[in-house]
Design a binder for these strands. Structure first.
Lengths: 232, 232
DNA sequence: CGCCGCATTGAAATTAGTCAATACTCGTGG
DNA sequence: CCACGAGTATTGACTAATTTCAATGCGGCG
């Protein structure tokens, strides 16, 4: 009945690059029970799910589509904290108000959970509490990876890391779908839309990726892309 | 007996800038019970507490001194994820291995808790689980603030934000002690040591701060510094 | 067909980084 | 008590990466 903070999944520690993504998938199954207290919400592209500072009464899970979390500086500079893809949870936290604004990148379907109900459910299924705790820990681990990227990586390393991360999360091998704009990618990586565009072009010219339209990239030379992501 | 994820502290939501720092202090009291399962550890300046990838068997709390968490890119570029000051917890997570290396910035005293024992203690004191959960949430909230800083702020805004954050955490009003080197500050903010130095000199010349030796700064004009931190 | 929004490309400007020299500081030993 | 020296910090000059500003191009939709 107590939250077991040191959950043991019976798996060996994942490779560094798998840390968050691998864990995330593994935990999703445990959380199916949550859906009994969830209701479905849909948003059109660019609509807002909630605003930074709103009283945080819900958790959300993405079913289809993509959501971004963002924060603004007073002069309009924007930062995107994360993209949420199908299966990802949004706003898992005990903080009283939302820490960021959440917007639909595409038309999106979500499940919405009332926090109060989730807390009750945890009383009956203590594993659920453990799972939520683990997911917040994963979020922290992803955030640390992202801080390293934002603080110390070059534009090329950032883009390479981003493409590999998206490929990992989408689980379609070397095919990467980019539902967001270049500006969104820039605001996620701490770059301008022009630099994102130029860097993608450069990777394409070097034969490391191929580009289909604007929303799809194929990783042609994964090894080189991985080396680039790590600054080698 | 269940982890209450939506803890209610009975306080109004703190000001945005107080989010993490204020919360941290508030929760420390609850965690006093932990000390019955803790043992004391001391480190000399520059010694390592644990390495990234080590099996994570302990949590730590800083008693005196300062600790930094860091990660390296293969070519030696370094990023400091956080500085831990007295009262701060290190490595709160359920991840199986440490996600970063932790090193002593100064001579340091810590309390070390065996994770297994903490889990047992939570069985007897469910509030403790709630507290740890809240602390991880705080960490996530700080990380989001830091990502905005790393991705979207200028050198001047970064330094201004850093000084204000340190002042907040040290709780000595406008007096800020900087136990770490300029290089450490740079690696925390995504800058070089030279840029940190130049920016501090510039703030000093503008009369926003005064500098005593290399380890102490006084905030002379807090309002201007706050405007700078927010990019105004 | 012609917008409209987004992406791409180019050129100039700027910020922060790099490389190099000099100056502090603090602890130690003469 | 002062001089020395190692480790940092500061400052300067130059370089490079990224941003900014400005066109131009492309694609989907009414």
């Amino acid at each position: 009945m107590s939250p077991n903070l040191a959950i043991n999944t019976g798996h060996a520690a994942p490779r560094p690059s798998m840390r968050a993504a691998g864990r995330r998938a593994e935990l999703r199954a445990e959380l199916a029970a949550l859906d009994q207290v969830g209701s479905v919400v849909t948003l059109k592209r660019e609509e807002t799910l909630f605003y930074e500072g709103d009283v945080a009464e819900h958790y959300f899970k993405v079913v289809t589509g993509a959501v971004r979390s963002c924060r603004l500086l007073p002069d309009g500079r924007r930062h995107i904290g994360d993209f949420y893809l199908p299966g990802d949870f949004i706003a898992l936290s005990e903080v009283e108000s939302y820490l960021f604004t959440a917007e639909a990148v595409t038309d999106v379907t979500l499940v919405r959970y009332v926090r109060r109900n989730v807390d009750q459910l945890i009383g009956q299924r203590p594993q659920l509490g453990t799972c939520l705790f683990a997911m917040v820990c994963d979020g922290l681990s992803s955030a640390q990876e992202q801080m390293l990227l934002l603080g110390r990586k070059t534009a090329q390393e950032k883009i390479a890391s981003f493409l590999l991360m998206m490929a990992e999360r989408e689980g379609q091998g070397d095919r990467v779908v980019l539902p967001m704009t270049r500006t969104d990618i820039g605001d996620y990586l701490g770059l301008t839309t022009e630099t994102v565009s130029r860097t993608l072009t450069q990777l394409k010219n070097e034969g490391v990726i191929t580009v289909k339209g604007i929303g799809e990239v194929n990783i042609a030379d994964r090894e080189t892309l991985e080396d680039m992501a790590d600054g080698l």
